[in-house]
Design a protein around this nucleic acid. Structure first.
Lengths: 336, 336
DNA sequence: TTCCATCGTCGAAGCGCTTCGACATAAACC
DNA sequence: GGTTTATGTCGAAGCGCTTCGACGATGGAA
């Protein structure tokens, strides 16, 4: 293993000079820098992560806490994780993977052992049990999602309320007067995850403002459940012409069910979704949708964390504005 | 921060004694151990990961390299990752997440900086460019999947060939004489991923042995492609009564397409799949399938890696035997 | 009883890096 | 021209832990 003293000797400088070349924390003459950098390349030197962490009390590793519960759309988690890793690398950090399962002990452990410098926590619940711990930890963290009390925490997420509103407003603009929201599985609401409720809030508020008739229907993540909801809607709300779907797993089966029940999309029924663009694009009927920007959220989350690590000022709350893309699933209300 | 000297003072012993209590590398009297452990608990001591890594040249972190390409079923990757993390924790290790994107440089970096002790590499290709590097690295690694030349590497995977055979044999046993394999997207074959080809090999070999008429059909991971394949099969192979599907994304659409084309499953057509149990169970028609045991593979992979880290002997190749579960999608051939 | 092995503990030497203060030297000021 | 100030580099002191050799105490073998 080649170490800093080897580089120093090879370049004819002291180890501290090599260190300063690497960190840029003190001015180094152009000439010396060149020489040191050449030696580093030539010897293939890589600073020992442990030694660096010990001396600098910075590990350059951050923890990503991923959820692993039912009712969470896995590809979104994965996309998110990838974007966190990619962004972290741009900032010269690596990512340690923690599962929800490890819980608070896991967080405390990696914090106390100085294994990580900070946390990115996904799937934060309204009343998340980890919040007091995260507040008390000496290491910074960024949450994806908003708990009930975000005081003193840095949170970021899509503005789900605005997303719900955007969908309703889009439908209203097209002339639809009776609309429904097909939501996430009931357990998502029970578990007090904020984002699902925010969509409902936005949906309901915008419908009220626009004087639209509206109803909300949680839906299990199975084709059968989708079919059932579709049947119920057709049966109970014959005047329905607009639907907002906030449930990745049932997009396709729901549209299929409606069509099999005689409602053509978008001729008879306009459908908008809140889901990853990738999903909306690749359905049989490409859906008009508000994007779930997992990659962007991941990137921004890491950047917020980096700011905190650099002791720069950081906004406590970041709500990403919804971005809606019109596709083939919405059309003006068909008034025969 | 409480350190080992604090614990030592508190317990009235030397730091080295505390260290030996923690590591068990030297005998310590029961009495002393008790006292030290009490002090550790009382002070809430946690050894500093960096210091430990520096002194012991073991970071107790292993790297998990995940794929992020098209044609890979994301939930499987995720399940796998979770099982790797969980198993690693049981062995007192943490997991660093690397993406394929970082490539060989990433591997070399975390190895050279001593950030990780070893690697678990997913999605190994037949002629994977990372193999020479992994062979030359001083840190052990375990691959998920089998490259063309596995000499000197530790590999583990489901025995896909046997899985293909098992599906064919199951269909043959039920009296089916004309069968087809609906495979992974073409890019999976082009990219020389071994597992997809192994399924084809097993399928073809077993069909030949059993004197079944058989054909193979790669299929894109979209409902439209599934429908196309179904139509083609119905058109070109009217005698077809058995299908093996090795493509998670098209299971449901494929079965739907067959039924819409007038083939009832399992009455007219028996379908078996190679996919995660969870998927097979939750379809409209639960599928008879060979399980893709991601959790088990992950667990075994980590355990292999741990053995290598402990310099214990390790098998080079581990092929998990296929496990088939009969569900509602297969039945004896209907001979009118 | 003597000798040797084992047990249990300690002290000290590092592991490879960062960082602080010190010290030249060169540039800038009145 | 002398005093500051900035620039560029060095040496040494740790960061918190593990590990090695040493050493007294104990116990069994001879």
């Amino acid at each position: 293993m080649v170490k800093i003293t080897d580089v120093a000797r090879h370049a004819g400088v002291s180890p501290s000079t090599v260190s300063y070349v690497l960190s840029g924390k003190r001015p180094i003459s152009e000439e010396t820098r060149q020489r040191v950098e050449a030696s580093i390349r030539e010897l293939g030197y890589r600073p020992h992560a442990g030694a660096r962490a010990l001396a600098s009390s910075r590990s350059n590793v951050l923890a990503l806490v991923v959820p692993l519960r039912a009712g969470i759309h896995v590809p979104v988690v994965m996309q998110f994780a990838v974007s966190v890793v990619t962004t972290a690398r741009r900032h010269d950090h690596d990512v340690l993977l923690l599962t929800q399962e490890e819980g608070e002990d896991g967080l405390r452990r990696v914090a106390d052992t100085a294994l990580v410098d900070g946390f990115v926590v996904m799937d934060v619940q309204l009343d998340d049990p980890r919040l007091p711990l995260l507040r008390s930890l000496e290491r910074p963290s960024v949450m994806i999602g908003f708990p009930a009390d975000a005081e003193g925490l840095t949170c970021i997420d899509l503005d789900f309320k605005a997303a719900g509103e955007a969908c309703v407003e889009h439908l209203a603009r097209l002339g639809h007067r009776v609309i429904a929201l097909v939501g996430s599985p009931p357990e998502v609401y029970v578990r007090q995850t904020a984002f699902a409720q925010r969509v409902v809030q936005g949906f309901t508020a915008a419908a009220a403002r626009g004087r639209l008739a509206s109803s909300v229907h949680p839906c299990e993540a199975t084709p059968a459940a989708a079919r059932e909801v579709a049947e119920q809607l057709v049966r109970e709300q014959p005047a329905l012409t607009g639907v907002v779907v906030h449930n990745e797993a049932v997009l396709e089966p729901l549209v299929d069910a409606f069509e099999q029940l005689g409602l053509r999309v978008p001729t008879d029924l306009s459908v908008t979704a809140i889901c990853p663009d990738e999903l909306a694009e690749n359905l049989r009927v490409p859906l008009t949708s508000v994007a779930l920007p997992s990659a962007e959220v991941g990137e921004r989350a890491v950047e917020l964390l980096m700011r905190k690590l650099d002791a720069k000022t950081t906004p406590e709350a970041t709500l990403l504005p919804p971005r809606m893309t019109e596709r083939a699933s919405t059309a003006p209300r068909n008034t025969p």
